[in-house]
Structure formats: structure tokens, C-alpha cells
Design a protein around this nucleic acid. Structure first.
Lengths: 143, 143
DNA sequence: CCGGATCCTTGCCGATACTG
DNA sequence: CAGTATCGGCAAGGATCCGG
């Protein structure tokens, strides 16, 4: 999972990693922890409201900046560009600039982006399926 | 979806005499928009890094507060309690207090919580499957 | 052990103005 | 139309103390 290396019971171990085990293990562990921290980083990027809503908004289509702005609704100009850059950087979204005037910029999900979208759809479905349960849970909790 | 009501084109349509939208429709529309805003609210609650990581951490088990604190790793005391309250309020997590001394508080996923966990697992899988792609995408982007 | 409350720092995010 | 830059308010979030 995205959870960090547990690095089981090295009670007195040290962060400096100077204690020689063997090089192969060290390299493997280094790879593992690096992959984990990367995964965590990506997860932190993506697991935020705006990013998920943007991905959902793009869907199978190809939308312009202003169309996305309307589609997401509630997002500010700044947050939209910010998240679009982030998603582009992570290769989830494709940005196409048409050098016309006025400029026309279109966004489309890449294959990984579409794959992620499927799971996000799952979250949305879940939300709707449990609206009732959640509402009543809230009601009983607020007492 | 969680996207807002589109409320398609109520322009200057309906030239017919009486705009007898009937009462039932009004009520329905009100319900729909209410449900949407509720869905959006829930989505905003849940679509955040800490909440998702906590749900993943609890998994099928029953963990104490301090165990969760260790499991999530990086989360602060405050964020943990805050998110646990939120998840409890939304009925995703069950909080059991054992009136011993020292106190023992255990957290378990409810059925809706476990259902959501499945989709979160999907996100985690996705992350790992695309680590390589993302890393290279980042590399080419940073240029 | 758990969690509420407080203080204080950080950075998120919105608003605005300016370039291509 | 799309994007960057800057500033300022305010809420998120960390550290700490205390109380049950």
C-alpha cells in the first residue's frame, strides 16, 4: 500500500543507515522506500478534492480551460490552473495548445488518467449509494 | 455524478400560456439539488489525503487510536482525531470506548466504510501500477 | 491512553492586475 | 482566452498542555 515502510523491529537502528547489512539488501530496501515515498507523494497530489473533480469533469471528452472552469463549478481560476499543471506533470492529462488567436487550449485524459477515472467513478457511485445512510448517521451523531 | 445540477436551458422557452410546472416537479428538483449539494459535501469531506489513508489503515481490522497514529505515519494527533470524528459522524467508522483505565478506544470500519475502502484500494493499485509512467512523465515535464 | 483546547506558524486559496 | 505574478486573509495543521 501507500503506507510507509514498516522496517520491522530495528529497535536501536539508526536513520543514518550506516549499519552494514549487505549491499544488495540495502539497495532493495532503498528502492522499496523510494517507491513508497513516491507513491505517497503521488497519492497526496491526487487525493484532493479539486484534482478528483477535474478528472471527473474531463471524463472522456476534450475540454477547454473555460469549459472546465464552468464544469467544475466552484473552483477558482488559480486552483484550476494549478491542478491542471499538476495533473499534466504527472501524466494524467494531456494539454494541447492551438496557436490561434485567441488561444485555444484543450485538455484530455491520458490512458493512466482514464484508468484513474474509473476508480473515481467508483467513489462517486459509492457516495450516491450511501447518501441516505450518511445523512442519518450524521443526524444521530449530532446529538 | 457529484457535478452540479445542469438544469438545462430554462431560457425563454415554453411559449404556451400557463407555465404550469407542476408542484411535484418543483419538489423533485429541490430534492435533486439538495442531494447534489450533499453529495458534494460528502465528497469534499472524504476526498482528502488523511481520510483516505486512515480508512486504508483501518482496513479489516480494529485499531486503537495509538495504533492508527503509528499506522498512518506522518499524521498528527490533531488531524487524526479530527478525521476520525468526521468519519464517525458520516457513519464510515465505528468508535468503541472501553471504560477501562487507562482508556481504550477502538476504531473499525462500518459496512459503508468497507465498501468505500474497496474503491480506495483501487486508487492505491492504480498508483502502484503507474509509478513508472508517472515518474517518467514528471521527468519529461520538468524540462 | 485518549482527546479536547489553545497558541502560533505555515501555506492554501481567492482577488486582482498584467502579458501574449 | 489562457496563463503568471503578487498580495493578503484566513483556515489548516503542528506543538503543547491539561483534564478524564
Amino acid at each position: 500500500m501507500v503506507t510507509q515502510q514498516v522496517r520491522a523491529g530495528n529497535g536501536a537502528d539508526e536513520a543514518d543507515g550506516v549499519d552494514r547489512v549487505n549491499e544488495a539488501d540495502d539497495a532493495d530496501e532503498a528502492d522499496v522506500t523510494r517507491a513508497d515515498s513516491l507513491a505517497r507523494e503521488i497519492f497526496s497530489d491526487i487525493a484532493n478534492k479539486w484534482a478528483l473533480l477535474i478528472i471527473e469533469a474531463v471524463g472522456d471528452g476534450t475540454l477547454r480551460f473555460s469549459e472546465l472552469r464552468d464544469a467544475v463549478e466552484g473552483i477558482s481560476h488559480k486552483m484550476l490552473t494549478q491542478n491542471l499543471r499538476m495533473l499534466e506533470r504527472n501524466g494524467l492529462i494531456l494539454r494541447e495548445v492551438h496557436p490561434t488567436v485567441p488561444p485555444r487550449v484543450e485538455y484530455t485524459l491520458t490512458e493512466p488518467g482514464r484508468a484513474l477515472r474509473v476508480t473515481i467513478d467508483g467513489m462517486c457511485d459509492w457516495t450516491h449509494r450511501h447518501l441516505g445512510h450518511i445523512e442519518s448517521a450524521r443526524h444521530t451523531f449530532d446529538a
